[in-house]
Amino acid sequence: MSDHRIELTVNGRKHGGTVEARTSLGEFLREQLGYTGTHLACEHGVCGACTVSVDGAVARSCLMLAVQADGSEVTTVEGLAEADGTLHPVQQAMRDNFGLQCGFCTPGIVITLASLTGEGKEPTEQEMIDAMSGHICRCTGYQGIRRAIRQLTSETA
């Protein structure tokens, strides 16, 4: 196995590490950098639990290799709330609406929805639901997530 030196920024902090070429970004974030908020649930790119933001675009961190993220800016679920603990609007909407139960799939969902909101973005409810179709939640039946989406779209409307 070949080892590779990579450097990247995660949630605004610089990190470096040596990884095998086969190491996924998700495994690297969890095992070497300690960002255990990113959850690996299927490791074949279907369930969406491991979704992180790489240079502003969402990515399945189970399918992306750590070496591919060399030089990137990565945001994980740990990087969304403000330093004083104020939740990101997506996190707050999920909390207000019982959008999660066990919380295992939640980090990826929060990252996906956060990527659609923010300055200058006005996603429609259907756009957010379409984005959610790339996530599997086994607990909630998506009811609270639908309500959270409605809260978010009415906030930005």
Binding site: Y35, T36, G37, T38, H39, T76, V77, E78, L80, A81, L87, Q91, M94, R95, L100, C102, G103, F104, T106, P107, V110
Partner: peptide, 11 residues
């Protein structure tokens, strides 16, 4: 939810 939404759960 506070810990689970911010990636601070312990699985």
């Amino acid at each position: 939810d506070a810990r689970l939404l911010t990636g601070r759960g312990q699985f």
